[in-house]
Design a protein around this nucleic acid. Structure first.
Lengths: 191, 191, 191, 191
DNA sequence: CATGAATGAGACTTCATTCAT
DNA sequence: CATGAATGAAGTCTCATTCAT
């Protein structure tokens, strides 16, 4: 299912990501992309059949990285997931402004579905970890699952979005740590 | 500063909002808009000088509604703000999928600035309420302000986004209540 | 043939002239014109049936002024004509950048004809004065008539054009006098 | 600075020149141009980034030709310049009705500047030749420089404009010769 | 692998004009 | 006298894509 990308294809996806991060999805046009790469429009069609194919490869990036999480459990897994997200964002800041920005692809139904699938799977995995954490007595169990998901992922999303919109004006790792610390305190089971 | 819109102008903004909500920002073209209104492209230019002007009027809607919050304080004000947001979303569902979707306007620097200003002001107001709530002993004071903001607004944003993306598949009021209840419990000062 | 213009019509023509002088013929649009006058587009159609009618009235201005030359003869008439032109230009500088700019109306065949007619008549009158001046021994007679016309009118046109393009940067009267003096010297019959 | 044009670009500029010559600047639209070339509007944008770029290339034509004047001096250089102009006009009659028609570009501030620069340089060169001619005793020295410029270039401009407007109804070379002869006589130093 | 040339659809915008009020 | 609302044609430009070389 997942196609291996050639070197050139990866270069193209990199450039595409850069364009989107810079000026949004509308900035991702075949001409801009080819100019960024120093080739002709037509040249891109040798590497990808479609523009859709490029965007799909781009979205695939998120997934590729997201899958490499080690098999942790409970609160440890939750913390790892949040850390992983922010580290990913720090590693490829262009991704930072794109990930969590599902609206960007609104209308691109092909991409929308891919993203929706990703989100669903992620959601499922997280819920599993929540249950584990509750069973292990790591976090309190009196909060509805969906609400819990929002309480944990919502702040993370907002944090990353703020960081992206401010063009990295604050220390993401530090703020992420504040977030994790506070969550730990708030969610821990009271004696 | 804020321009009063004519009846027709409001009709146009309504239609624009509908278009965006349906298929995203890319769906908001002058042609689509005029077709939705049953007139020619050119007709719109009688009412607005620019497409930008239309989008600005549209963004102004958020602001207009956001300003009408009663002068509450502390946790009450925070709760009211969250309730107000969700009620706004319920009242004009088209707005729902647009609000909190700053990325939609990424690249549209004119609009970006307006939104940025709105966010800044909102942020400031919320921080004031947080401080009041802490002083009043309504919520605990050991969480950094910015983190507190993310912990409260992040979940709300995610909730509204989920509701929008699912096309209203769940009861927004109910879930919002769960969120508020949980927040209250989590943030309350422990004896 | 020549229609008397109402007060409002004259105001409109004035504004039209100003627009053309400012940014060229392409700047003369009904909307710009109406905006300059502080009314709606539609309002202009009460005063003129057509845009063509406005332009015709505008061109008529040149003619109107050009006709009022006193019945002089010979070199005196020639000098008077040149003086008259420059004075006209000084009196209504907007006209300055339009008059002698037949190209501006190229394509506007209706106007082109009017202008062509004006030029023809002017040409004829000037030739008559040339002949008188030669017969009177005021200027030498060994220059072909058409060449003489170019030698006298060409410099004047260039002078006015330079003045217009420089936005009145030099003293038109002074330079015109230099021109007349030099012409007198050059063309006078040698002993 | 001066960009080399491709074959296709030159074809486009040729067509553009033809369109302007035929019906004036307003006739130079992308659609007309592409139709004249038998292609789509969009095709032109492969060769030129802008419509402005096309016009600039077009204006560059004047300059290109104007620069190739041999290094002559004094009256010989002046005569050569006038001859060159008329020959240029005869060689490319389309240029004829455009050259000396600065008004055509009024409002096109980009082009206006290019033209203004060209005029300035031309003016400077001519003044130099005037001085040389005076020093060499070829022409009289009692006429102000600027006036001299107008006396010589003005008639030439008018001649070319008349020829262009009459669609080549008379023998340009013959009339130009009359002009030169007369000028020589008038301006020569009297014994 | 890439370029040169083109296309058709559609984007935003301006223009002159009309008509009912 | 004027406005409010609209129209149809035209203008400039961008976009994704194709095809021959």
């Amino acid at each position: 299912m997942k196609k291996e990308l050639t070197t050139r294809q990866n270069e193209i996806v990199d450039a595409a990501l850069r364009l989107i991060a810079e000026k949004g999805m509308r900035n991702l046009t075949i001409r801009h992309l080819s100019q960024a790469l120093g080739v002709t429009d037509a040249a891109l069609y040798y590497h990808f059949h479609d523009k859709v194919e490029i965007v799909q490869a781009l979205v695939g990036r998120f997934e590729a990285d997201a899958d490499n999480i080690e098999p942790l459990h409970g609160w440890t897994a939750i913390e790892a997931a949040l850390v992983h997200r922010t580290e990913l964002v720090l590693a490829t800041p262009d991704l930072a402004r794109v990930v969590f920005a599902e609206e960007l692809f609104q209308g691109d139904s092909e991409v929308e579905q891919i993203l929706f699938g990703m989100m669903q799977r992620h959601h499922k995995v997280m819920l599993k970890h929540f249950r584990e954490a509750i069973e292990a007595g790591e976090i309190r169990g009196d909060i509805p699952m969906d609400t819990l998901f929002r309480l944990i992922l919502g702040p993370l999303r907002l944090l990353i979005k703020q960081w992206g919109m401010s063009h990295g004006a604050f220390d993401l790792r530090e703020e992420r740590q504040h977030l994790l610390d506070s969550m730990k305190i708030l969610l821990s089971v009271k004696p």
